[in-house]
Design a protein around this nucleic acid. Sequence first.
DNA 1: GTTTACCCTTACGTTAACGTAAGCGCCCCG
DNA 2: CGGGGCGCTTACGTTAACGTAAGGGTAAAC
Lengths: 131, 131
Amino acid sequence: MPTADNAKPWTIAEVAGHFGVTLRTIRHYEELGLISPQRLGTVRLFHPRDRVRLELILRGRRLGFSLEDIATIVNMYDAEPGEVGQLTYLIEQIDVRRRHLEQRRRDIDATLAELDEVERRCLDDLRRLQS
Amino acid sequence: MPTADNAKPWTIAEVAGHFGVTLRTIRHYEELGLISPQRLGTVRLFHPRDRVRLELILRGRRLGFSLEDIATIVNMYDAEPGEVGQLTYLIEQIDVRRRHLEQRRRDIDATLAELDEVERRCLDDLRRLQS
DNA sequence: GTTTACCCTTACGTTAACGTAAGCGCCCCG
DNA sequence: CGGGGCGCTTACGTTAACGTAAGGGTAAAC
């Protein structure tokens, strides 16, 4: 059964624990408009939608994007259909992002290759020392 | 002929121009010990070795590493053979870095997939608007 | 009924990674 | 020989992304 239990919103502490960040970080992201959790009185309630956005935000952060960049990215994900100009602009932005990401993947691959090389040298040196 | 011309060291302005960074940035990296260009009097001279290091540094920067992290990475590249303890430690560090990078590549792939999805939706909407 | 556990806001503090300005030295050109 | 052009150092300024402390509300728990 698709339990209604699963739909129970999370507290800020639960969210922070789940993602391994502090409460301050989450509040900070709200200040910047990256997330807008529901309020019950003054208390924040985090629904699945909010958790998904946080996942996206943290992924962007790991990739070294600024929170400002991240804002434009996550806002692309739930943009309303809008008019033609908006859509073509959005598509352009997607291409820009894609190029960035592809550059970074090349950076990663190059770095990984060099790490392999360094490790190989280390292992060689080790073998030499132990023989 | 392997021209000695090719070995002519670069000025700080040439290096900055080549990599698209400011003079301040380069000097900052020297302050942190990330590079140590030769000095002719007070003037800095950049040899190929320095340029390679800068390339590595900027790659790390694009990947969102802190300059401190980058320092440990680039210093791995030209570590002296050393003793067994050093070597095994270095190999561990390489593994740590590798795991980080692999995580980031997963992040990139996930983000690219989602960008594709968003773009597909955009193109659909466009077609709908123009039909 | 008060202590404990979370939650809130406001606001100043901190760190990294440079930016920017001031003031000086050197060399070459007209 | 007096500017430019380029390079240097010293040192304070700036921005992003939170950290941290102060002060206060509410609700279950003892």
